[in-house]
Nucleic acid binder design. Structure first.
Length: 926
RNA sequence: GCCCUGGUGGUGGAAUGGUAGACACGAAGGACUUAAAAUCCUUUGGCCUUUGCGGCUGUGCGGGUUCAAGUCCCGCCCGGGGUACCA
């Protein structure tokens, strides 16, 4: 073979590795550029062609930036904690660490074959004690800080303690769980346990009894983003609500900053929108309603204060603390029954039965503060304890849920908003609530006649004046549950004294994951760590929960900056130099998980002066999924006979997925098919044109669909450079696209053509030092220009197309001149680094091409003297006309009109108008 | 339901409001070869016409703006993703 990638590629990979070509320096006079991939969870299945897509793109950018004179940080590591290895441990007894190391070794082997320019000296693994030491350390810092709303940042809890001992909690403006007011003397006489209990309301990492997503099948609690439609994202097991003592992170304190930060970063609009929705800011009004015959008042949150005259009842959540208080003796049995029923419903039932109305009257009444009406208070599970205050004022006239509830329980419905120019309609005739986003208030006392917007403002003002509430902002974002009842995760650096949690001191870190005799909960239902021998600190029991998956991935990009630092998370020098990630590439599925947690983690580290940038990832690109192209054979139902694709309609058939390795160009290798599975040994085929043609289906790439393309096989067959080129050539990085098994041949042909420019028929390297012609220079320089422009907008597929055009043109010109081919080699080197290194060295260069200078294009080679004008009549292009570019618009017009071809289209008429855009187009309007 | 995306040949896709379909796959025909592989050449959106020319039509659908619309505006249809008793 002429182009021998099998020899070239391993050679250069070995050289890069041996010479540490891509090791980045933490001090440099060069400008920095930090390119990061989302690090993978090393699964047992290895990589398929979809995984390296993002890595190839980031590698191309890394190499491109090096050529542009940047000091590039391009690290890789492993998100090594995860459920699959632990589930495997439960089944087989194999320590998850063993499984994980094995999988990591396989991933590494696969990645090495693709020729990435990673700085492997900086590799991190989240399960490595030298790494998770800093995860534990950050947790301690979170525990030792609270969120001060006045300073709008995290402050040390010690400052809060000082304040308490001098002023009590008066004047404290902090994110916290509700609790009673206390004075300095109250605080000073409290015992330690009471003080600690109180502080727990403020800490950014706190222990509390909270309603959690409990997954019995996985034996653990899950975060909101790990649950979808009432099922666990991993494994699809049912999830229940359960009240458990758990560690949480007070991420809700950062809701506004997480929202505001989105405006400052270059991420796709769709992913920012997902985060905005997840954070769910809503502006509204908190107000309290008096309760008849009670001292207490009922707090509600509403975004539609204007509709307060339309309130006809109130609803509290089944978990609301006032359930007991509000229930009158005559409703006690019904309420108890309803609450028990509601609480025991699974999340899944609750979600699938959304349309079913359920609820129970408590027997109590609230008083509408603005019109004095007495209104009944109900309990219903359509009101959620976790949002707002867990209680609402119901406006059935203008809210679809309240409307359904009112109809079900025969409660009055009042119209208080009416669109301009419409007459109010009797609500008893309505079949649904009245959309009231716009309109004018009616039947609403002092706000009648006002527009909705003004009415909201006026009502909030009134409520504030009355001292029963104020305008507030609510966020949907909940605090992140941080405990998992699993083995394979970071242990908490926490021990318990007198039932209260205490942090280990920094010199005790890392607290290493202990050995256990089984990876299962204990008989008493405690997490696996409770099985560990001597799981104590100075005689005190250690925490038995472990941290969730997102713990280790939240700050890993900072650790890469200084990965082997044993004294600190990372040094000041390193973080000051690298700042944050310039380009982050990874999947969009992390929008509400990792990408929010990491931003939160970074903002906290920023508050305590560790991180230096308020946002971790300046630019984010979400690579699209590569789908599989499955091959389908058609079995005639009930037989072992298979009918070719175009004949299948003549029979009743069953589509069967066929291994794509048995199919070439949709033609099935029937012999191989027979050998594929024992049950197909006697398969018969109805052919068309002597062939068996398969159908195809574009779907997820998966083992079970036999459509997986393994990068190793492709590297073996075509080489890494071809694979890299082809993955980019498939289409825009961000789009989902199917893998066409045949298409890779095209980029392989291109590689061979490129090689041939430098070699004669006998594969001898022959290069000419002759001066290049204008035409050759033009081809080169227009390619440089195009590639540079396309790289700046991350349009990799069009770069590859430009390379192809360039090589096609140079082949046509029979150009083997150094003046052209040397810059072209540099240009291609970020995409196809192995062949580029080889040719670079054959050209007589000593160092790696990685640090060559990216060629500059010169406009002077691109200047044309003539232009092939498209001549349009009424916008329709009819012919082209070559004219000198230095003609004036009038001269061009004259030339076009006097051209003999124009006469045919003018049909003797005089044109009404002639548009001439110099160097672009001529349009003649008749 | 709401929000975000996308819709261009047989396929993947290209196109700062200015020649729609670059580049590649596939297909058809041809050259080389004992043959295959590899390589090279020609054709390739559709329809009509064809001896050559040429004509009509065409970027999900219907309108609009413009000398000119795949691109901008309005109203729909369909696919993909996110989210959902969030008050």
């Amino acid at each position: 073979m002429d182009y021998n990638f099998r020899e070239i590629e391993p050679k250069w990979q070995a050289k890069w590795s041996k010479e540490k070509t891509f090791a980045a320096d933490n001090t440099s006079s060069k400008p920095k550029y930090y390119v990061l991939d989302m690090f993978p969870y090393p699964s047992g299945a290895g990589l398929h062609v979809g995984h390296p897509l993002g890595y190839i793109a980031s590698d191309i950018i890394s190499r491109y930036k090096r050529l542009q004179g940047h000091n590039v940080l391009h690290p890789m590591g492993y998100d090594a904690y995860g459920l699959p290895a632990e589930q495997y441990a439960i089944q087989t007894g194999t320590h998850p660490e063993i499984t994980t190391s094995k999988n990591i070794a396989r991933y590494r082997e696969q990645m090495d074959k693709i020729g990435f320019s990673f700085d492997w000296d900086r590799e991190v693994r989240t399960c490595d004690p030298s790494y998770y030491k800093w995860t534990q350390w950050t947790f301690i810092q979170l525990f030792e800080h609270y969120y001060d709303k006045t300073a709008n940042k995290a402050l040390p809890i010690a400052q809060l303690v000082d304040h308490f001992s001098s002023f009590g909690n008066e004047g404290v403006n902090a994110s916290c769980d509700p609790h009673d007011a206390f004075t300095a003397s109250d605080w000073n006489v409290m015992n330690e346990k009471d003080q600690q209990t109180l502080l727990m309301n403020y800490r950014l990492a706190y222990l509390s009894d909270s309603w959690v997503n409990w997954c019995p099948e996985l034996g653990t609690v899950l975060a909101n983003d790990e649950v979808s439609n009432g099922l666990s994202v991993r494994g699809g097991h049912p999830v229940e609500r359960k009240l458990m003592r758990q560690w949480s992170l007070r991420i809700s304190s950062y809701a506004q900053r997480l929202l505001d930060g989105l405006e400052t970063i270059d991420w796709s609009e769709s992913i920012k929108e997902i985060q905005r929705n997840w954070i769910g800011r809503s502006e509204g009004c908190a107000a309290s309603f008096a309760i008849k015959d009670h001292e207490e008042r009922l707090d509600i949150f509403t975004t539609r204060a204007d509709t307060i005259f339309g309130v006809t009842f109130m609803v509290i959540a089944p978990e609301h603390p006032y359930v007991e208080l509000l229930t009158t003796p005559e409703y006690k049995n019904e309420v108890t029954e309803y609450v028990t029923w509601a609480k025991n419903r699974s999340e899944r039932e609750r979600m699938t039965e959304v349309k079913k109305v359920s609820g129970q009257f408590t027997g109590s009444f609230a008083i509408n503060p603005l019109n004095g009406n007495e209104i009944p208070i109900y309990i219903a599970d359509y009101v959620l304890m976790g949002y707002g205050t867990g209680a609402i004022m119901a406006v059935p006239g203008h809210d679809s849920r309240d409307f359904a509830f009112a109809r079900h329980f025969n409660l009055p419905i009042i119209q208080v908003v009416c669109k301009k120019g419409e007459e109010p309609i009797d609500p008893s005739e309505w079949t649904e609530s009245y959309d009231s986003k716009e309109g004018v208030m009616i039947q609403s006392g002092f706000i009648s006649g006002l527009e909705v917007k003004d009415a909201i403002r006026t009502t909030i003002h009134k409520i504030e004046e009355m001292g029963i509430g104020k305008g507030t902002i609510n966020y949907r974002l909940r605090d992140a549950i941080f405990s998992r009842q699993r083995y394979w995760g970071e242990p908490f650096p926490v021990y318990y004294k007198d039932g209260m949690p205490y942090m280990l001191s920094e010199d005790q870190l890392p607290l290493e994951l202990p050995e256990v005799d089984a990876y299962l909960p204990t008989e008493t239902g405690e997490p696996p760590l409770a099985r560990a021998k001597n799981w104590t600190y100075n005689g005190y029991p250690l925490e038995t929960n472990t941290m969730p998956g997102f713990a280790g991935s939240s700050g890993y990009y900072l650790r890469y900056m200084d990965a082997s630092n044993s004294e600190a998370y990372f040094s000041k020098e390193a973080v000051n130099y690298w700042g944050n990630v310039d380009l982050y590439i990874g999947g969009a599925e992390h929008a509400t998980g990792h990408l929010i947690y990491a931003r939160f983690w970074n903002k906290f580290l920023y508050d305590i002066n560790l991180a230096v940038e308020p946002e971790p990832f300046a630019k984010l690109i979400n690579q699209g999924m590569i789908q599989g192209r499955s091959s389908i054979a058609y079995r005639i139902t009930g037989t072992n006979q298979f009918v070719s694709y175009n004949l299948r309609d003549q029979y009743e058939t069953q589509p069967i997925h066929v291994d794509i390795n048995l199919v070439d160009n949709d033609v099935l290798d029937t012999e191989a098919f027979r050998l594929w599975r024992p049950d197909l040994k006697d398969a018969e085929f109805i052919l068309e044109n002597g062939k068996y043609l398969c159908g195809y289906e574009v779907e997820k790439m998966s083992k079970s669909l036999y459509n997986v393309q393994n990068p190793d096989d492709l590297v073996d067959k075509y080489g890494a450079d071809t694979l890299r080129l082809y993955e980019m050539f498939l289409g825009p990085l961000e789009q989902a696209k199917p893998w066409d098994t045949k298409g890779i041949e095209g980029t392989f042909r291109f590689m061979k053509k490129f090689w041939k420019l430098f070699h004669d028929r006998d594969n001898q390297f022959v290069i000419s030092d002759e001066k290049a012609t204008d035409q050759e220079l033009k081809t080169l320089h227009k390619t440089i220009k195009k590639v540079q422009e396309d790289m700046e907008r991350f349009s990799f597929n069009t770069c590859v197309a430009s390379f192809m055009i360039c090589v096609n043109e140079l082949t046509e010109l029979k150009c083997n001149k150094r003046e052209i081919l040397e810059p072209l080699t540099i240009l291609i080197s970020s995409f196809a680094p192995h062949i580029a290194e080889e040719l670079w060295s054959l050209l007589g260069n000593k160092g790696s091409i990685s640090f060559a200078n990216f060629p500059q294009y010169d406009e002077k080679y691109l200047i044309e003297s003539t232009f092939e004008y498209p001549v349009s009549f009424n916008g329709k292009m009819r012919f082209t006309l070559a004219l000198p570019l230095d003609l004036s618009a009038d001269q061009v017009q004259e030339a076009a009109l006097s051209n003999e071809k124009s006469a045919k289209y003018l049909e003797g008429k005089t044109p009404k108008k002639v548009i001439v855009v110099l160097g672009k187009i001529i349009n003649i309007v008749i």
